[in-house]
Design a protein around this nucleic acid. Sequence first.
DNA 1: GTCTATAGAAAGATAGAC
DNA 2: GTCTATCTTTCTATAGAC
Lengths: 195, 195
Amino acid sequence: MARKTGSHSQITGPRIRKAALKLIARHGFAAVTMRQIAAAVGVQAGALYLYTPDKQTLLFDLMRDHLEELLAAWEAEPKGDDPAEQLEAFSRFHIRFHLERPDAVFVANMELRNLEPENFVAIEDLRKRYEGVLVAILERGALHRDFTLPDSRLAAMAIIAMLSGVNTWYREGGRLSRERVERIYWNMIRRAVGA
Amino acid sequence: MARKTGSHSQITGPRIRKAALKLIARHGFAAVTMRQIAAAVGVQAGALYLYTPDKQTLLFDLMRDHLEELLAAWEAEPKGDDPAEQLEAFSRFHIRFHLERPDAVFVANMELRNLEPENFVAIEDLRKRYEGVLVAILERGALHRDFTLPDSRLAAMAIIAMLSGVNTWYREGGRLSRERVERIYWNMIRRAVGA
DNA sequence: GTCTATAGAAAGATAGAC
DNA sequence: GTCTATCTTTCTATAGAC
């Protein structure tokens, strides 16, 4: 087989990240080898080290990029003024954004254990910022008496867990459309917070 | 160091399982070595193979035992007749049972990927049986007009995800007592299903 | 930028002594 | 029932050719 020549750094980099995301989501970070990732991309294992200093940094970059994209996407999301409108926007946004990139979500949620301490702190900070978005919406709603909530933080954790659960069972082309899932979840959340 | 003598199979077996559960919950199945488990128990790696034929079977046994215990505990749980009573019993039971054994829960939820196909099917069957318990409660409640639900299966998935999320943030001796968490969650669920 | 080849470490599992 | 010792495999990461 002829050896490939020439520069592909603009192409290979993204392909490595995508293949790594897919493999790590399927099998877990510790179970995936650099050789497997390289094979999925069509290069030799050694070539991966042109794109990442080591396996740990590859994982960290995947998780950080996902969470930064999540926060940026929420910032760009159109949302109304009153708390109920914002809560609906958040609920629908969360479901949609997460269903669009199941591999990245899975990795970001499941591989915290495999981060080295320094990296763990950085990722946790990003996760907490996202939780803070929802807490702020709920607290403002409770203040304005739009919501009836004994504890905003706890409600935020409950709502995020519930919304994130969609990724574990939703299948494109299944019994329910994404729009219908969004509406049903929003209705449950709306009632749960007493809006 | 003097070599230990005598039989300890009644003691060592459970200690291996407990140590494995803890280590796998912390670091993930693929990242934990048989040598680490052995060291935590205070034996050599080879001795583990008196208690399990291989690492995969150890994982499978841990997950199966946890889920069988879960199903048996629900069977033994006192629960009323009407759907709302049963839903409250289920909600409180789920939180309590899961908070009591965080390591086993974590392993059972996170290590599905590391099961070989045959074992995966067996564990999925047990998981589905537990989900079926909640689906049945919700369907009966919807039938009797105790609950207002567009989709019982979807509501079941949402409720289980929400309840399971407690394990990710609850800390013994923290801001909220377990009883208070149970009550707040039950109130959110009660309103979400329109009871 | 990618390859081949390999150094060096560590894994799962087994054999045989005690 | 447990130990020590080891076989065999496989891993991450690097070196040097092209």
